[in-house]
Amino acid sequence: MKKFLEDLKNELTKQHMLEKDINEIIADHEEMIQNAMLEGLSEEEMKKRFGDPVNLAKELASFSTHEAEPFNIPEGYLAWKNFSTLSSELKIKISLVAEDISVVHSQDEQIHVHYSGKGDISKYTCTYEDNELVIEAPKMSGFIFMKSKNDDIQLILEIPKSLVITNFQINIVSGDLYYANLNANTLTLSTTSGDVTMLNAIITTSKWNTVSGDLMITDVKLENLNSSQVSGDMHMKKVYVGKEMKLNTVSGDIRIEDSLCQDCALHSVSGDITGMEFYPSRVSLKSVSGDITIKNKNHTDIEIVSKSTLTGDIHIQL
């Protein structure tokens, strides 16, 4: 059965499970195998009773928390800047125009910035001083829509997981933001037409302003969230807000799945707001012509503080 334990451990590691979970699972199996031996089971009977460790590991991994997948820098990216960090805290300020940026966790203890594209990287600013990282696109002369394909730039910013991001401020006009596997105390986000993808993060206070870009938010824990969007859509999945969540939309649709929060205020002019398996404790709903629907399987008490609509439908099915 030694081989069973070894195979199980290898497969769990392969499935990117957390080390503490792996250790616990192995300890549980050592205990169960010992008990099976005390019962006097033969090696053959043991094999039958414990089954296949590979299948077992896959099954266990299917509902467990995973180690953040290492982010592989795609081909075509070049290293631009590397900084050794001087403190355990970090402030970040990013202001970009049409550049896409991915902000992910670093594989080591350094801050790395990579770039790709045909644009002239030397016109960009990237500094790290007084525990503040600043990335800025060159000041534009002329209009944004005059930018040609010949000066596009994509950036990847890698931040060590051990750093505490105290304040993260990011402004992008038309570029997209991908933010994954990083925690922050305060995150302020503002985009015009760029899309935002946020994955696996813990953020204390966050404020999002978007105009026509879409937001995809998955596996994010927040204390307070204040979001305001004009015509872009938002899709939230597995979002947990400890205190207050305020979502405002003009004509964009909002879809919230498998999420919960304490106090929730949903305001819409003509966008539809749909909650599926969405469990706020208290909720206030306001719309002009948009529909607001909350559909949950489990019956829980949701206190409706206020609801008003002019011509939209408000449906709460519990």
Partner: peptide, 14 residues
């Protein structure tokens, strides 16, 4: 066998 039961125990504990 164990392959079926242990994951259930673990999931329901979680």
């Amino acid at each position: 066998n164990e392959n079926t039961i242990y994951p259930i125990l673990r999931r329901l504990t979680n």
